[in-house]
Nucleic acid binder design. Structure first.
Lengths: 214, 214
DNA sequence: CTCCTTGGTAAGTGCCACTATCCAAGCACC
DNA sequence: GGTGCTTGGATAGTGGCACTTACCAAGGAG
C-alpha cells in the first residue's frame, strides 16, 4: 500500500500523513525505491490511533509522540509501559503551590484518598498528573466560592472507580496480549471523551425530567 | 478597586485582564474619569469564572464569550439559559455522516438511549453537541477495531447518570437562585476535568492493586 | 512642574497543526 | 525515447489562538 492508498483508507490527507511521518508519529514505510515506499496494515492501525488521539482525545502532537514512544518501548514491563504512556498524556498547568486554595485542595484530596482507601494512589501524589489535575480543579471550584460537602467528591470518586474497574476488566478479557498497551492508551484517550459526553447527555436528560423543556 | 488591584486579587496579569475586557469576557469597569475605572466584587467573581473556564476547562476564549452571553441573557428562562450556555461549550469536530463507522455509531447510541430510557435525550440527537461527541468517540473506538459488549456502554452511562443526579442535587440545594446559571456553567466546566482526574486516579489505583508496581 | 501611574489601543510573539509548493526520480503509454 | 503523470520527501507558509509588549495621552502626587 502506498501513501495515496493509506490516505484513502484512513481518510487522512496525504500532506498530513507526511507531516506525521516527519514528526515521528508514524514509522517510515518500507522503501521500495527512491520514489516509492510501501505501508502495511500496522501503519494503518497506528495512523488511526494517532488520529483518534489528536482529534477525539485532543492530545497535542508532541504528547502523541511521547506516548507512542512508551508504547513501543519493549524494554519495559506492561504495567510500567501503560503507566508511562498514560502519564505522558496532556496535563493541566502546574498548580501554584503558594496559593492558599491550592494548599487547601491538597489537604482535601489527601483526605479523600484516605476515605476511599486508595492507598496506592496516595503514594503517587507527588508525581501523578491526574492527582495534580484534581487538585487544580478542586482549588478552582473553591476559589469560585462553591462549598460542597466532601461526600459529593467521595461519591464521584466511587463512581469513577467503578468505571475504571469496568475499563480494566475490558482490557483483560479482550485485546490480544501484544496489543494491551496500545489498547490501554486508546481506552484512556477515547473513554474520557465518551464519559464526558455521557455526563452531559445525562445532565440534559435529568434536567429535562426535572424542569421540562419550558 | 482599580485594575492593578483586580489583577493582584485574581492573580491574572494586568495585560491579560485588559485583553479579556477587550474581548468582552469581562464587563467594563465604572469609569471614574478618563484614566481611572473602578471594579467591584462581581468583576472579581466573573474574572475567576473566566479563568477557570479557560485554564481548567480549556474552553476557547470565543466560546467563553458565547457562554457568558447566554448566562447574562435575562430574557430567557433558567433551564433554557443553562442549556444554551452548556451547548456553547466546545465541541468535537462534526462527525462525517458518510463514514460507515459514524452511521453504525449513530445506531449504537440510539439503541443505548432506548435501553436507558432516556426519552428526553432521544429528542435531542439532532442538535445536542454531547450526542455528537458520543457518536464520534464510539465511531473512533470501533474504527480502531475494538469490539465491546454494548453492556459496557450502558454501565458507563448509568454511572454518569448517577453523577449528573448528584450534580443537579447540588445545584438545587446550594447556590443562591440568582447564581444558578453561573453555577451550572462552573459546574459543567469544572466537574468534567475533576471526573476525568478521578477516573485516571482510579485507574492508577486499580492497576496497582491488580498488577502492583512491578 | 516633574514624574509616576492609569486605562486604553495597536501591533507583535510564540506555539501549533497543518497545508501548499517544489523538486527530482520513477513509471506508463505512445 | 520522449512526454506527462505520480511518487515520496523537503521547505516554507498559513491561520488561529492566547496572550504580551510597546506605546499613548490624561490624571494625580509630591
Amino acid at each position: 500500500m502506498r501513501l495515496a492508498r493509506l490516505s484513502e483508507r484512513s481518510g487522512v490527507p496525504v500532506a498530513t500523513i507526511k507531516y506525521y511521518l516527519r514528526e515521528g508519529l508514524l514509522p517510515p514505510g518500507r522503501q521500495v525505491n527512491t520514489t516509492t515506499a510501501e505501508y502495511d496494515e500496522e501503519h494503518l492501525r497506528r495512523l488511526r490511533l494517532v488520529r483518534a488521539m489528536i482529534q477525539v482525545g485532543r492530545v497535542p502532537v508532541a504528547k502523541v509522540r511521547e506516548v507512542l514512544g512508551h508504547v513501543d518501548d519493549e524494554s519495559l514491563g506492561r504495567t510500567i509501559r501503560v503507566g508511562a504512556a498514560l502519564w505522558a498524556l496532556p496535563q493541566v498547568p502546574e498548580p501554584d503551590e503558594d496559593d492558599e486554595y491550592v494548599r487547601a485542595a491538597h489537604r482535601e484530596v489527601g483526605a479523600l484518598l484516605s476515605t476511599l482507601g486508595w492507598e496506592n494512589a496516595k503514594q503517587l501524589t507527588t508525581i501523578s498528573p491526574a492527582y495534580r489535575q484534581l487538585v487544580v480543579a478542586v482549588a478552582a471550584f473553591r476559589r469560585l466560592g462553591y462549598d460542597w460537602d466532601s461526600e459529593l467528591l467521595v461519591t464521584r470518586a466511587r463512581l469513577m472507580h467503578q468505571a475504571a474497574i469496568a475499563d480494566l476488566d475490558f482490557l483483560e478479557t479482550h485485546p490480544s496480549e501484544e496489543e494491551k498497551v496500545a489498547a490501554a492508551v486508546a481506552s484512556a484517550v477515547l473513554v474520557e471523551p465518551m464519559l464526558q459526553a455521557l455526563h452531559r447527555l445525562a445532565q440534559e436528560e435529568e434536567t429535562a425530567r426535572r424542569y421540562g423543556f419550558e
